[in-house]
């Protein structure tokens, strides 16, 4: 009978919620939505700001984009002949971060494999904590180490005249990249289903065979993403390379290995050291901002690639 159901409804009214709860929830919802959106807003705002500061340089007569990118002449404060060429700085960045990645990748992947596949549970916990600790050391402290400890070692063992050079900066930067690459690579290995390990083990594969025949291929995208994020870190790092690379604007000379004992300056270090002294709105100031735009683009591309690579794995699995 229909009346029955009507009475049933009448007996159980919907629970009434207090006005505070209703209003409060909608306020909270708006707040967290804003918090979420803010990330996008900040990124766009930062990009807008550095681009706005840099853009007027294209109207300056002293400046040409070709010279900016391909000339090694960096004389921003010259009285008679101002030149803004950052080629040497680009090469410096590439040398230091390239060396850092080359040094860091084998160590990081090795330790990721060890942590995820070979060591016992106690050692695993200990290592993970220590590696996170390594990531927490401020970059200026790494700079100190580069300036004093490793540069002395570099001079002692290579016979270089100056200890603060590509090798020194690359090693310091490598030490800074290792924790990032290791922890992301370890996550990638951990994400490989355990059933693959058991399957291979039951067929009589040794642990090492499991690693290189199954795990590395299965985790390769994640490992690649780890390396790319390490590259992003290396390119963007400032303080430690500023202190550890010697800060000389020059393209390092001497193949195949001589170049690693030359001092260089990187894009980041150049901005950090000169921006404070460049008069606001001057050409020098704007060129430094343009360098920032370039860096932003480089790290953005690297991170985007890493992100796409990781998404690629998720879709496949």
């Amino acid at each position: 009978m229909p009346p029955n159901s009507v009475r049933f409804k009448a007996e159980r009214p919907p629970p009434r919620r207090s006005t505070i709860a209703v209003v409060g929830e909608s306020i909270l919802e708006t707040l967290i939505r804003l918090a979420g959106m803010s990330a996008i807003i900040f990124v766009l705002a930062i990009f807008y700001f550095i681009f706005k500061e840099a853009f007027p340089i294209f109207g300056s007569e002293e400046f040409s984009l070709g010279e900016f990118l391909f000339s090694t002449q960096w004389y921003p404060t010259s009285e008679t002949n101002v030149r803004y060429g950052i080629a040497a700085l680009i090469v410096g960045t590439m040398c230091v971060s390239g060396l850092a990645v080359v040094v860091a990748v084998p160590f990081s992947l090795g330790s990721a494999i060890y942590i995820s596949e070979f060591c016992g549970p106690m050692a695993k916990e200990a290592l993970k904590i220590i590696i996170e600790l390594l990531a927490a050391i401020p970059s200026v402290v790494w700079g100190f180490i580069g300036l004093t400890v490793t540069s002395a070692l570099v001079m002692k063992y290579t016979g270089a005249q100056v200890g603060i050079n590509v090798l020194n900066g690359g090693v310091i930067l490598a030490l800074m990249c290792v924790p990032i690459i290791t922890s992301i690579a370890e996550d990638a290995l951990k994400a490989v289903p355990d059933s693959y390990r058991e399957a291979a083990m039951a067929l009589g594969a040794t642990r090492w065979q499991i690693v290189y025949k199954i795990l590395l291929p299965a985790a390769k995208n994640g490992l690649l993403a780890a390396v790319l994020l390490g590259v992003g870190r290396a390119v963007g790092e400032t303080m430690a390379v500023l202190m550890a690379t010697g800060h000389a604007v020059q393209i390092p000379q001497g193949l195949p290995f001589g170049w690693i004992l030359d001092s260089v300056r990187t894009l980041t270090a150049n901005i950090a050291s000169e921006l404070g002294e460049a008069p606001t709105q001057s050409d020098h100031y704007r060129v430094l901002f343009l360098t920032g735009v370039l860096l932003f683009i480089i790290t953005f591309m690297v991170n985007l690639t890493a992100d796409l690579v990781v998404r690629g794995i998720r879709r496949k699995q």
Binding site: P193, S195, Y196, E198, A199, A200, A202, I214, P217, A218
Partner: peptide, 10 residues
């Protein structure tokens, strides 16, 4: 042979 088929990812 395991409970869930576990062919290797190759």
């Amino acid at each position: 042979v395991f409970q869930r088929p576990n062919p290797l990812p190759i």
